[in-house]
Nucleic acid binder design. Structure first.
Lengths: 211, 211
DNA sequence: GTCTATAAATGGATAGAC
DNA sequence: GTCTATCCATTTATAGAC
């Protein structure tokens, strides 16, 4: 394996497990059993590593977002789609733990992250509109935007609330819980079927987390 | 005004406006036209200042939470109550911008912050239960917990999404928008009145932000 | 209480040998 | 490509004069 890739791999693991902020370039070099000088030969510093990691994340997230266009019609599709997005975020979770501070430190990444968010918003909006038009959903005026905001917020901060509350659930359970939360944002707008759908989602969720 | 209080006041303003992470003890001293040595005479360092600021925040937030017990019965009461909480958070917004990283750096504050969150959760849960029992709300099994999570999340991360999306609304508009979002989480569960209530909330919200 | 001066520690970064 | 050695800048923290 190329040294460059090894650095990215180990740095990502280190950031995800210990947090990005406390790690210095020397810490990363140590984790790789490598001299700081050598690390600087491959990357100009921690900044360059973070930018390279964001490149990877951005690329993969775009594939996921683009790949879903027009293919999601059922509730089950929605569940799976959310699951895939959350798993991708989990792989680069160090980024979301610190989001505000990180984007303040790297304005260039902030621009790109916002573009990604805008694409997500777009995807969610058109998805909801499709469900509304097919009569699966009943959205009053403005409610489309309101729910989009709520879903976007859930997708962005699900990891934070968990950390802050100090919960100790497994990653898999947390992802399932989050998907459930997102579905629960939509279910109340499903008219008289909403209650039944909510019930079956609860059953599905319980089976996933083994409750 | 006592020097100690001046330090806290200026440090809070500095953290809120420029972010907490980039400010060193020397920066704070400069903002006060004071020598670092003098700052260290009053506080052992930035850590001690942050702890003192958290003391203030915790104290005021507890007063707000305690003061509301059993007094909130109408939708209008809810609107006002949320507004007061959001304003208090806004006064100490530096804390919420960085929440994850900050709590990781100060485990003692993490414990206290979690206790505060638990008290908030408690308040929201009993509030929803009250509305459910009086027939204002219709919550299926589990839905109480789900909505509580959603509200708690909105109250905790409203400032972050705004910063991340780079929006440029006034603080007042942002607070109104957030209250609206929280009410919109509850409205769909108000049975057949939900639609009308939602409509009147939208009108009220529009009047507040002058749209 | 407040200042100046300075020590001690840390993190970022590069030069030059191998 | 990789290492050692080193430098520079920043930050924390304290001692001692006023």
């Amino acid at each position: 394996m190329k040294t460059r890739d090894r650095i990215l791999q180990v740095a990502l693991a280190l950031f995800n497990e210990e947090g990005e902020a406390p790690q210095s370039a020397v810490d990363i070099a140590n984790a790789l059993d490598m001299s700081p000088g050598n690390l600087y030969y491959h990357f100009k510093g921690k900044d360059a590593i973070i930018r390279a990691l964001f490149d990877d994340f951005e690329h993969e997230m775009r594939i996921i977002l683009r790949g879903s266009r027009g293919k999601i019609t059922s509730i089950e599709d929605n569940w799976i789609y959310n699951y895939i997005i959350l798993e991708e975020i989990y792989d680069f979770r160090f980024f979301y733990r610190n989001l505000g501070e990180l984007l303040a430190r790297y304005p260039d990444l902030a621009v790109r992250f916002r573009a990604l968010l805008a694409e997500k918003r777009q995807t969610i909006t058109s998805l909801l509109k499709g469900l509304d038009q097919r009569g699966v959903l009943f959205l009053g005026p403005r409610m489309g935007d309101v729910i989009t905001d709520q879903i976007l917020s859930a997708l962005t901060f699900w990891l934070n609330l968990d950390v802050i509350e100090g919960s100790k659930v497994t990653p898999s359970t947390l992802i399932h819980k989050t998907v459930f939360q997102i579905m629960a944002l939509v279910a109340p707008h499903m008219g008289k079927d909403g209650f039944a759908i909510m019930q079956s989602m609860i059953a599905y969720y319980d089976s996933k987390i083994g409750a």
